[in-house]
Amino acid sequence: MARAVSTQKKVMWTALAWAFGLLLFFPILWTFLTSFKSEATAIADPPVWFFFDWTLENYTAVQERSNYPLALTNSIIIAVGSTLLGILIAVPAAWAMAFVPGKRTKDVLLWMLSTKMLPAVGVLYPLVLLAKWLGVLDSRILLIVVLMLINLPIIVWMLYTYFREIPGEILEAARMDGASLRNEIIYVLTPMAVPGIASTILLNIILAWNEAFWTILLTTVDAAPLTKFIASYSSPEGLFYAKLSAASMLAIAPILVMGWFSQKQLVRGLTFGAVK
């Protein structure tokens, strides 16, 4: 039983937790505020907090930069594409491993996870070479395939754990209730598997969106997603803090929202079930 806690204590914990929470969140908050300032206000001394002329000019400026729309499109296509391709390959595999486990299932699963731990630099040059040879360097399809491959172990793993949670008795009940295999899949299995598939998709879009090794090194312009686009701000060009902030907010906002929805899946997806 939980004990009743005195309000005084609760207020104290609340203050402490909020203080640390805001401290960790502060860089994002500051970026958010700066993105609405003019460039001059952005570097004002002393720093300006909330009371300034809020402006959207940075967002307009960023949108107008020639390569922003392209980078955004690339990010969306690469993140969504690699995730869906991964799901397509992973669903049958995870399904089979969860429902028809064999003696070697566990070994296969662990082997798949071990490929995730291969350091990227170990295969950097061959990949560049192969991409050049196939003529796909700086193309979306290359990144879709590469990001799919590096996230496939996580996709398989997450789906496997979700599928395994579907109790066998329910499938037996459906069989007793007269469902054919087809009906069993349509009416019982799929509805129970969909939430798991959805959260797997969500988490993997986030991972693919933020991937910043292959996306930086395998693209130049045409297929460059937001990771690369933002990196191009690393060489300063006059006053640019406000525009940098606006570009950053555009790159992280959608993922922050998705991330908040997938907190719980994060633990499952990134610890491979080692923490429950």
């Binding site: 109790p167 008795e169 329910i170 037996e172 009940a173 459906a174 069989r175 007793m176 209730d177 007269g178 469902a179 054919s180 009416y187 019982v188 509805p191 129970m192």
Partner: peptide, 28 residues
């Protein structure tokens, strides 16, 4: 099992969690 005309009540009840009670009962 579907063709034997038998009904079974499981230890874990094995209800379909995504269906309402009405739909659970209607399923067979």
């Amino acid at each position: 099992p579907a063709k034997r005309g038998l009904a079974m009540v499981f230890q874990s009840y094995a209800l379909y969690p995504h269906m309402s009670v009405r739909k659970n009962i209607a399923f067979p």
